[in-house]
Nucleic acid binder design. Structure first.
Length: 701
DNA sequence: GAATCGTCTGTTTTT
DNA sequence: CAGACGATTC
C-alpha cells in the first residue's frame, strides 16, 4: 500500500499503532480512507484480524468496512454497531446475568406493547401515550446505566422494574438492553470482563461524537487493558443527543484516556469551496465549538442555489424539474443525487413530483420494510417457533387469522397463566390436550378448537424446522395458518402485503445462501437490528432521506428542502438553545454531503395538520453569507435571466416532442412562477403534464 | 366476539 | 388529512 496519496495528518493517523488516539475528522476529510488504511496497516504489521474490533454507527457502514478490508487485505475483521456487538457478547455470556442465551430482541413497538401490559398489571391504566412516554424515560435511564432501583423518580422505577421482569419472563431484551446489560455484565463479572478485554487488542470506534453514556462505558471497559483505542469523530456532526449521545465524550477524550494523542483532519476533499465555506459560516454560529476550520484546495464551484416556493408542491416541482435539467445538462447519474428533509412526512410531495415525471427514486429509511404489519406478523410466528415464553409474539399471532380468541378470552388465559405460573403458550399447550387443565376456565367450542389449531400449527412448524430452509418454513407457515385469510379482510392492501411476504421469502432465501451458519435466530436478530437504510435498489435512482440518515454519505447534487422555521430548526427544539445548536449541526451535516451542487429550498405555505400554515424561511438560510448564494425563487430577477434562453413559445394545439414522455399536444400555454409553462397532453401515457418551458426542452413536431 | 362508524389527535430525528 | 382508538351495534 502506498501512503503517497495521504496528507501528513492522515498519514500520522494511519501509522498510529499503540495507545489511545482521537482523530477529529471534519466532513469530507477522508476519514473512511484513514480508518481502512489504518486497519490494513495493522494487518501488515502482523496483527491478527481477530484481534481487531471496529464499531460503526450503522450496520451498513459496518458491512462496507468489512468489505473494504476483505478486498484490500483478504481478511475478515469484526465490524459491527454497538448494538450488534452487545448482542454478540450477550449471546455468548448473558448466562451470568441469569438470562438465557437464546433471547429474542424486541423493537420499540414490541417494547411498548409489553410496557402497556405492565402498566395494566400495575393498575396504572393502559394509556398508549403514557406507555410511550414511559418507554422513552426507561430508555433514557438505560442509556445512562441507571437500574430500576437507581432512578430518582420512584414511580418510574417501579414501572421500569416491572418492565424488566416482564422482559425477562418473555426471554426478551429491548434495544437498550443490548447496551445496558452488556455493560452490567462486564462490570459485575470479572472473568467475563477479562475475557472480552483480552479478545480485542485494537479497537476502533467511528462516529465517536454520537456515543451515549452506555456506549462510552462499554468502550472504556473493553479498552481498559490494552488502551489501544482509535476513536474517530467530529463534534460538529453530533446529531443524536435525543438518543443520549454526548458529544462531550469527544472533548473529554484526552482526560478519559490518559496519554491520548489527537490528530485533526481539516482538509476537505469532497465539496467545492463555495459549499464548504458556506457550511463553515453556518456552523460558526454555534458558540462553544471546538474550533476547526475546514479548508479545501479545490475549485470554487457554483454558488448554492436558493429556491423559495409558494407551497411544498411548488417546492417539489422545482426540485423535480431541476433534477431533470441537471441530470441532462451535466450528466449526473441519478444515484449521485439526493433530497434531504427534516421529517419523514415531507417525502410525500417529492414522491408525487418525481413519480409524475417518471424519475426513479428510493426512500432510504422511513417506514422500514421490516416494520410492516404483515412482515412483523410472520416474524412473530417465527419467534414463537423458537420460544414458548415470547408473550408479545403470542399476543400478536394468536388471533391471526381469527380464531375466536379476542381480548376477553386472552385476559382469561393470561390470568390462568399467571395463576399456574406458566408462560401463556405453555398453558395453551396444556389446554389443547386437556380442556379442563385450568379449573373454572370456560372456553367456547369454537375458541377451544381455535386454540388447539394454533398450538398444533406451532408444533408442526417446530417439527418441520430442522429439515426446512427459512423461506420454506415461512411458506409452510403461511399455508398452514391460513394467514392469507386474514389479509383477505382488507382487499385493498392484500396484493401489496402478499408481495411483501414474497419479498421476505426471497430475502430469507438469499440471506441463507450467503451465510455460513444461518440460523433462524440469527435471521430474526439481523432483521430487528438492521438499519432501515439497507435497501438494495437495482435501478439507478434519486435517494430521498432524512438529514439524520444522510450522515456519512455524499452526493454530487444535493437538495436540502423544507428550510423553514419550526421545521428546520424543528419546533420542538425552540425552547432550548442546545437543541437549536443540534439542529444547526444537522443542517451542516446535510450541506457538507454535497460535492458539487447544493440547493437549499423552502416554501412560504405548507399544508400541515389539515390546513395551510404560513412559514418563515429558516434562520439557517440567513446565517449563510449571500456571497455563496444565488437566488432562483419565482420572485427573483434571476428567473428572468434564465428565461432568456427559452425557446420560442408554442401555442395551444401545437404538436411537440419531449425526450422522456414522447409526443404530445399543447393544451394550454401560460405564465407561472416558473415562467412560460405548458399543460401538455402526452399520447403514450394518456396523461396531461404541467411543464416549465425553460426546463422541459420541448421540440416542435 | 367482531364489524362498523364516528371522533380525536397529532408530526422529529433511529440503533 | 390521516390513522388510531373507542363506543355502539349486530
Amino acid at each position: 500500500m502506498s501512503t503517497l496519496e495521504l496528507n501528513p495528518q492522515q498519514e500520522a493517523a494511519v501509522n498510529h499503532v499503540e495507545g489511545p488516539l482521537l482523530v477529529l475528522a471534519g466532513a469530507g476529510s477522508g476519514k473512511t480512507r484513514v480508518v481502512t488504511y489504518r486497519i490494513a496497516k495493522l494487518l501488515d504489521m502482523g496483527v491478527l484480524p481477530s484481534d481487531i474490533l471496529a464499531v460503526t454507527f450503522t450496520n451498513k457502514a459496518a458491512a462496507e468496512m468489512r468489505n473494504r478490508i476483505r478486498i484490500l487485505k483478504n481478511a475478515q475483521v469484526l465490524a459491527s454497531t454497538f448494538h450488534s456487538l452487545g448482542s454478540r457478547i450477550l449471546r455468548e455470556s448473558i448466562g451470568a446475568l441469569g438470562y438465557k442465551t437464546d433471547f429474542a430482541i424486541y423493537d420499540e413497538e414490541d417494547s411498548e406493547k409489553l410496557l402497556k401490559n405492565c402498566l395494566e398489571q400495575l393498575q396504572l391504566g393502559g394509556d398508549k401515550k403514557v406507555a410511550k412516554e414511559m418507554r422513552q424515560q426507561i430508555s433514557t435511564a438505560k442509556n445512562n446505566l441507571e437500574s430500576p432501583d437507581g432512578v430518582v423518580d420512584k414511580s418510574l422505577g417501579l414501572v421500569y422494574g416491572a418492565y424488566q421482569t416482564a422482559l425477562k419472563e418473555c426471554n426478551a431484551l429491548d434495544f437498550d438492553d443490548l447496551l445496558y446489560l452488556t455493560v452490567k455484565l462486564l462490570q459485575e463479572h470479572e472473568t467475563v470482563r477479562q475475557e472480552y478485554q483480552n479478545r480485542w487488542l485494537f479497537i476502533l470506534i467511528d462516529e465517536y461524537q454520537d456515543t451515549n453514556f452506555a456506549q462510552y462505558s462499554l468502550t472504556k471497559l473493553l479498552v481498559e487493558k490494552h488502551q489501544n483505542l482509535f476513536a474517530v469523530g467530529d463534534p460538529d456532526q453530533s446529531i443524536y443527543s435525543w438518543r443520549g449521545a454526548r458529544y462531550q465524550n469527544i472533548l473529554n477524550f484526552e482526560r478519559d484516556f490518559p496519554g491520548a494523542k489527537t490528530i485533526v483532519l481539516d482538509q476537505n476533499y469532497r465539496s467545492t469551496n463555495n459549499i464548504l465555506q458556506a457550511s463553515n459560516a453556518l456552523i460558526e454560529h454555534n458558540p462553544d465549538r471546538y474550533e476547526k476550520k475546514l479548508w479545501s484546495a479545490g475549485s470554487e464551484g457554483e454558488k448554492i442555489t436558493v429556491f423559495i416556493g409558494q407551497n411544498e408542491r411548488q417546492e417539489a416541482e422545482f426540485v423535480a424539474l431541476r433534477i431533470l435539467k441537471m441530470a441532462a445538462d451535466r450528466s449526473i447519474p441519478l444515484d449521485d443525487i439526493a433530497i434531504f428533509y427534516r421529517t419523514n412526512a415531507q417525502s410525500r410531495a417529492f414522491e408525487d413530483a418525481l413519480l409524475s415525471r417518471r424519475i426513479n427514486y428510493s426512500i432510504i429509511g422511513g417506514l422500514s420494510f421490516y416494520a410492516r404489519r404483515e412482515i412483523k406478523d410472520i416474524l412473530s410466528y417465527l419467534r414463537l417457533v423458537i420460544s414458548n415464553t415470547d408473550l408479545i409474539s403470542f399476543l400478536r399471532t394468536i388471533n391471526l387469522p381469527k380464531r375466536g380468541l379476542g381480548p376477553a378470552a386472552l385476559d382469561k388465559l393470561a390470568e390462568a397463566a399467571a395463576q399456574k405460573k406458566l408462560p401463556i403458550f405453555t398453558l395453551c399447550e396444556e389446554l389443547a390436550s386437556d380442556p379442563n387443565f385450568v379449573h373454572g376456565l370456560k372456553l367456547s367450542a369454537k375458541q377451544h378448537s381455535g386454540l388447539t389449531n394454533y398450538v398444533r400449527l406451532i408444533h408442526r412448524l417446530r417439527d418441520a424446522r430442522p429439515s426446512l430452509k427459512i423461506h420454506e418454513l415461512i411458506a409452510e407457515l403461511i399455508a398452514e395458518s391460513n394467514y392469507l385469510d386474514f389479509l383477505k379482510e382488507d382487499p385493498e392492501t392484500m396484493q401489496d402485503r402478499k408481495e411483501n411476504i414474497d419479498e421476505l421469502m426471497g430475502k430469507a432465501a438469499e440471506w441463507e445462501e450467503e451465510r455460513e451458519h444461518p440460523t433462524l435466530q440469527l435471521f430474526l436478530e439481523e432483521l430487528t437490528l438492521r438499519s432501515t437504510a439497507e435497501e438494495k435498489t437495482d435501478l439507478p435512482s434519486i435517494k430521498l432521506m432524512t438529514l439524520h440518515n444522510s450522515k456519512g454519505l455524499e452526493f454530487s447534487l444535493v437538495f436540502l428542502v423544507g428550510l423553514e422555521e419550526d421545521l428546520c430548526p424543528h419546533i420542538n427544539s425552540k425552547d432550548n438553545p442546545e437543541s437549536i445548536e443540534e439542529e444547526r449541526r444537522l443542517c451542516y451535516v446535510g450541506m457538507t454531503r454535497a460535492r458539487k451542487y447544493l440547493y437549499l429550498t423552502a416554501s412560504i405555505y405548507r399544508f400541515m395538520w389539515g390546513t395551510f400554515r404560513p412559514m418563515r424561511p429558516s434562520r439557517f438560510l440567513k446565517e449563510i453569507p449571500v456571497r455563496f448564494l444565488q437566488n432562483s425563487s419565482p420572485t427573483s430577477p434571476m428567473i428572468q435571466e434564465e428565461s432568456t434562453s427559452d425557446p420560442e413559445g408554442f401555442s395551444e394545439g401545437e404538436k411537440v416532442y419531449h425526450h422522456q414522455f414522447g409526443a404530445g399536444t399543447i393544451q394550454k400555454a401560460y405564465h407561472s412562477s416558473f415562467g412560460l409553462t405548458y399543460d401538455v397532453y402526452f399520447d403514450d401515457s394518456d396523461t396531461t403534464r404541467t411543464l416549465a418551458a425553460k426546463f422541459a426542452k420541448l421540440k416542435s413536431l
